[in-house]
């Protein structure tokens, strides 16, 4: 196997005196769906923000495809092939659904027509084709989440960071998203997702990484991780697994 696609080397991040991340090491090989789980405040979103360049780590390094990307601004990180979605969806309200999805494509093409085609492809992938010309204000929450995903896809990422993209969705809607993610992973895309709903993690992920107090406490297949006593104690045991 070649070098991992993404490497976190001793990442720490402090806010005031509190360590949100504390010497986190993580290797992500090419391909597969990895779920990053952990109780609230475990440092999952901080971890995402550091990978995506929205935050700088207090110490440590982020390597992507062998290249150090620590401290690069978010746009440069995206242009190297890492796309992210936000926990709270942030559509651009004055652009149509299709136009929202075009923005990411402008990182790799100068042509509006090409971007439009790429955006249409991305919308098709998440099932939003019928609403391409709608105003984003008229979208339902699941549709907005899908738009968030389509926007990230239009950047043609090699690594996709999904921050609770399924929160607030009904189980059938979430299942549809899982199917989309599986299809993307089958196409060679590497996916790292933060997710609260354990049922989805078990269903979608090929690997689960558990964070607790900013450090990694378990790493393995979903089946291995749910049987890990430390995980059960710190996280799974503390909260019921799955909201109805």
């Amino acid at each position: 196997m070649s070098a991992p696609l993404l490497q976190l080397l001793g990442i720490s991040r402090r806010f005031g005196g509190v360590a949100a991340l504390d010497g986190l090491d993580l290797d992500l090989p090419q391909g597969g769906i990895t779920a990053l789980v952990g109780p609230n405040g475990a440092g999952k979103t901080t971890c995402f923000s550091i990978i995506a360049g929205a935050l700088s780590p207090t110490s440590g390094q982020v390597k992507f495809a062998g290249e150090t990307i620590t401290g690069l601004p978010p746009e440069s990180v995206c242009r190297r092939g890492i796309a992210r979605t936000f926990q709270v969806v942030r559509p651009m309200r004055d652009l149509s659904v299709l136009e929202n999805a075009m923005i990411g494509a402008f990182g790799w093409t100068r042509h509006v027509a090409t971007a439009r085609l790429a955006a249409a492809d991305a919308l098709a992938m998440v099932g939003l084709t019928a609403k391409a010309n709608a105003a984003v204000g008229h979208l339902t929450l699941p549709d907005r989440k899908m738009l968030e995903l389509a926007r990230a896809l239009s950047t043609r990422p090699r690594l996709l960071l999904l921050d609770e993209v399924m929160a607030g969705l009904r189980p059938t809607e979430a299942d549809a998203v899982v199917a989309v993610l599986r299809r993307l992973a089958a196409g060679g895309l590497t996916i790292l997702l933060v997710e609260h709903v354990m049922r989805i993690v078990m269903q979608a992920a090929t690997r689960v990484v558990v964070l607790h107090h900013g450090a990694l406490i378990a790493d393995g297949t979903p089946a291995q991780v749910v049987q890990d006593p430390r995980v059960i104690e710190s996280y799974l045991g503390a909260s019921p697994t799955d909201p109805p």
Binding site: R90, D94, E99, G107
Partner: peptide, 21 residues
């Protein structure tokens, strides 16, 4: 192209930057 990028920045700068703008 630049018009789309400008309007994306105006509507949500952080989201636009995360999309490579």
């Amino acid at each position: 192209r630049i018009g789309y990028l400008w309007r994306a920045l105006r509507d949500d700068e952080a989201a636009a930057r995360a999309l490579g703008v």
